[in-house]
């Protein structure tokens, strides 16, 4: 359900960008999806197929996902570590004063138009 909502947002933004650039058909939409963004890539591409094929602009358009690994920074020792493996607690010093550096992105990177 969540992924479908995100797909509608993507379609809205892509339509706007296509209109601004005078594009009639987009062949690929490239997304940057963070590892801890709560988006499940397979669900997103499934919802995309269903919704995109209803639009002339996006019929057959591929949604390509480029994942961004999640990294957390520790204020305790100043080091970074992979979020998914260690969660909220720093594996270097055991501190809980940590925050997500990257990995929650849901970003449209680019559109590719084949002529």
């Amino acid at each position: 359900m969540h992924e479908l909502g995100i797909v509608f947002y993507i379609i809205r933004d892509v339509k706007k960008a296509a209109e601004e650039n005078g594009v009639e058909h987009v062949s690929t939409v490239v997304m940057n999806i963070g590892e801890v963004s709560t988006i499940i890539p397979e669900y997103l591409t499934d919802c995309w197929r269903w919704a995109a094929d209803k639009e002339d602009l996006l019929r057959g358009c591929e949604l390509r996902i480029e994942p961004i690994p999640a990294v957390t920074h520790c204020d305790g020792c100043g080091k970074d570590y992979p979020t998914v493996a260690h969660g909220k607690i720093c594996p270097h010093c055991g501190s809980e004063k940590t925050w997500l550096l990257r990995g929650n992105e849901v970003e449209i990177k680019e559109l590719r138009i084949e002529s």
């Binding site: 995100i6 960008a17 992105e105 449209i108 680019e110 590719r112």
Partner: peptide
């Protein structure tokens, strides 16, 4: 292939 850069959060 023409590429339009967006780099924008949804």
């Amino acid at each position: 292939v023409k590429i339009i850069e967006i780099k924008k959060s949804v």
